[in-house]
């Protein structure tokens, strides 16, 4: 999604917000963000390997009404400078946009220091925060436009779109139904959705899951569509799959939300990131298998 991110931001430099845009990177973006650097000139700032300072500088810039985007590898963007995000950005409701690359297990064999599997959970504990988790690469234009138009601070968890070959990616929406049938309701967060589409489409219509992808959190800012609520009420089973730890994840938020609305769930299953690291390291696909987030594990629990 880095190319799409860069293209979307470069396009934005030609728009109404152009004179107010500032982009900060924590010394990342080689072979990816050079066009943005060229487009922004002095307003493209490599803040160096100093993430705490970068976040507070972003708050200082935003306090003076500049439109500030901050980019790093996901954990360096939110975990190291968490207090700066909390105190300096969210306590003042400054609309700084944090972009974390490689959400979930995206950095795979790079190891647990580079994984971001508690990102949106911890960030959504903060006041005013919005989270965007684009599902497909093509979503990035809309995500940048929507985040840029928002008056709230935001975190964009970038991954890698994983649609099956030949799949016609549907236009961006905060909620999208990707497969339909008479089976369980499955809700996924971000790109993980794409990994299930082909397998679900091969199932008979009678048992094929209603697969939904959510791309914006929290639910208070992005209510569930009525059709999804109706499907949950009628379904025999509800499953949430997310590349995020269980505590603070979307699964628990969804269940609390349903409980508040007095919507009963007959059977709930949760697939989630089970550990920051396992005995052996490996790719994102390997780590998903270790966490039972892979297609076979999904089919087994359904």
């Amino acid at each position: 999604m880095r190319k799409q991110l860069c293209d979307a931001l470069v396009a934005r430099t030609a728009g109404a917000a152009s004179s107010r845009m500032v982009f900060l990177t924590g010394d990342l973006g080689f072979m990816a963000l050079e066009p943005l650097q060229q487009a922004l000139g002095a307003r493209f700032i490599n803040a160096g390997v100093a993430e705490q300072n970068m976040i507070s500088v972003a708050a200082g810039l935003a306090r003076q009404n500049l439109e500030v985007w901050v980019y790093s590898i996901a954990p360096f963007c939110y975990a190291r400078p968490f207090e700066q995000i909390r105190n300096d950005i969210t306590f003042h409701n400054l609309p700084v946009k944090l972009i974390g690359n490689g959400g979930g297990y995206g950095y795979g064999v790079m190891g647990p220091t580079h994984h971001a599997i508690e990102d949106y959970g911890v960030l959504l504990t903060l006041p005013n925060m919005s989270v965007y988790v684009p599902v497909f690469d093509q979503d990035m234009d809309a995500v940048i436009a929507r985040a840029g138009a928002s008056s709230r601070p935001a975190y964009i968890r970038m991954g890698r779109g994983e649609p099956p070959g030949g799949y016609a990616v549907p236009a961006y929406a905060p909620w999208r139904q990707l497969t339909g049938g008479g089976g369980a309701v499955v809700i996924t967060v971000g790109p993980l959705a794409g990994t299930y589409i082909a397998a679900f489409e091969r199932l008979p219509a009678k048992s094929r899951p209603n697969l939904w992808a959510v791309a914006e959190l929290p639910l208070e800012q992005n209510p569930m569509p009525a059709e999804l609520v109706s499907q949950i009420e009628q379904a025999s089973s509800l499953c949430v799959a997310e590349e995020h730890v269980r505590r603070g994840g979307f699964g628990s938020e969804l269940l609390l939300h349903l409980a508040d609305k007095n919507i009963a769930v007959r059977r709930f299953r949760h697939l989630y990131a089970r550990a920051h690291h396992f005995e052996r390291y490996g790719s994102q696909h390997f780590l998903r298998r270790q966490s039972a987030l892979d297609v076979d594990s999904m089919l087994a629990i359904l």
Binding site: S56, A58, E83, N87, H92
Partner: peptide, 19 residues
């Protein structure tokens, strides 16, 4: 800015001055 946790103010000031 709401300060109180030490080590934030100079970065906030730098961002403001940069703006």
């Amino acid at each position: 800015f709401a300060t109180g946790s030490l080590g934030h103010g100079l970065s906030l000031a730098a961002g403001t001055a940069l703006a």
